[in-house]
Measured scan of single mutants.
Amino acid sequence: TETYTFDSEDQAEEFAQRAQKKGYTVEKRKENGKFKVRVE
C-alpha cells in the first residue's frame, strides 16, 4: 500500500484513474488542503 500526495485535485484524479486502469484499488481523500491517493 502506497499513499501519494498531490497539490491539485486534477493531478490526484488523473493518477487515480491510471492506477485503477492497472487494476489497483484506489482511495482518494482530501486532507489539509492536499489530495491524497492511497493505492493497493
Rank of each mutant, 00 (worst) to 15 (best):
V26C: 06
Q11K: 10
V39D: 01
K21A: 13
F6L: 01
R29G: 09
F15P: 00
F15W: 05
Q17T: 11
D7H: 06
T1G: 14
K36G: 04
A16T: 05
A19F: 11
A19G: 02
E9P: 05
T1Q: 11
E27M: 09
K36M: 15
F35T: 04
K22G: 10
E31W: 05
G33T: 04
G23Y: 03
G23W: 03
T25Q: 11
G23E: 02
V37T: 00
S8N: 12
A19D: 01
Q20F: 09
A19Y: 13
V26N: 01
E9M: 07
D10T: 10
T5D: 06
R18Y: 13
E40M: 14
K34N: 05
Q11A: 14
T25N: 11
Q20C: 07
Q17W: 09
E27R: 06
N32Y: 05
T1K: 08
T3W: 15
E27A: 08
D7V: 06
F6M: 01
D7R: 04
D10A: 13
E13R: 06
Q20L: 14
E13N: 13
T5M: 08
K34Q: 10
V37P: 01
K28M: 15
K36F: 15
E40C: 09
E9K: 05
V26P: 02
D7S: 07
K21F: 08
T5H: 06
K21T: 08
K28G: 03
Y4R: 05
E27V: 13
K21G: 09
A16C: 09
F15S: 01
E14R: 10
F35S: 02
D10M: 10
E9Y: 09
G23T: 01
T3M: 08
F15G: 00
A12P: 00
N32S: 06
R18V: 10
T5P: 02
E27D: 10
N32A: 08
Q17I: 12
E27K: 08
Q20I: 14
Q11V: 09
R38T: 14
V39A: 02
R38W: 10
T5W: 15
V26W: 03
K22Y: 13
K22R: 12
K34M: 10
E31V: 08
E2D: 11
E40I: 15
T3Q: 06
G23N: 03
Y4L: 05
R38M: 13
Q20R: 13
K36P: 02
R29I: 15
F35V: 06
Y24E: 03
F6E: 00
D10S: 11
A16K: 04
E2P: 08
V39E: 00
T3E: 15
T1S: 13
E13M: 07
E40P: 04
G33F: 03
D7L: 07
G33W: 02
E14N: 07
F6I: 01
R38P: 01
Y24V: 04
T3L: 08
G33N: 06
Q11D: 13
F6D: 00
E31P: 00
F6N: 00
Y24M: 08
R18E: 14
Q17V: 11
V37N: 00
A12Q: 05
F15N: 01
Q20D: 05
A16W: 04
V37S: 00
A12E: 00
K28T: 14
K28H: 09
N32G: 12
K30F: 15
D7M: 06
Q11I: 08
Q11N: 05
N32H: 08
Q17Y: 09
D10F: 09
D10C: 02
R29P: 01
F15E: 02
E27Q: 10
V26Q: 01
T25G: 06
E27N: 09
Y4Q: 03
K28N: 05
N32F: 07
N32C: 07
V26E: 02
T5Y: 13
D7I: 06
G33V: 02
R18N: 12
K28S: 09
K21W: 08
G33I: 02
E27S: 13
G23A: 02
A16Y: 09
K34F: 10
F6S: 00
V26G: 01
V39K: 01
Y24K: 05
T1P: 12
F15I: 02
G33R: 03
K36V: 15
K30E: 14
V39C: 04
Y24P: 01
Y4S: 02
E31L: 05
S8V: 06
Q11R: 08
D7P: 04
R29V: 15
S8K: 07
K34G: 05
G33Y: 03
A19H: 08
R38V: 15
R18C: 14
S8H: 09
Q20W: 08
E14A: 12
A12G: 02
D7E: 10
Y24C: 09
N32M: 06
G33K: 03
T25F: 12
V37A: 00
K22Q: 14
T5Q: 07
K21M: 12
K36N: 09
E9S: 05
E9W: 11
T5L: 09
K30P: 07
E2R: 15
K21Q: 13
K34R: 08
E9Q: 06
D10L: 10
Y4T: 03
G33S: 04
Y24R: 04
V37L: 03
T25E: 08
T3G: 04
K34P: 00
E31A: 05
E14Q: 10
E31F: 05
F15R: 01
A12R: 01
Y24I: 05
G33E: 06
T25Y: 12
K30W: 13
V37C: 03
Y4E: 02
E2K: 15
T25W: 12
K36Y: 15
R18K: 11
V37R: 00
Y4F: 12
Y24S: 04
V26A: 06
E14L: 10
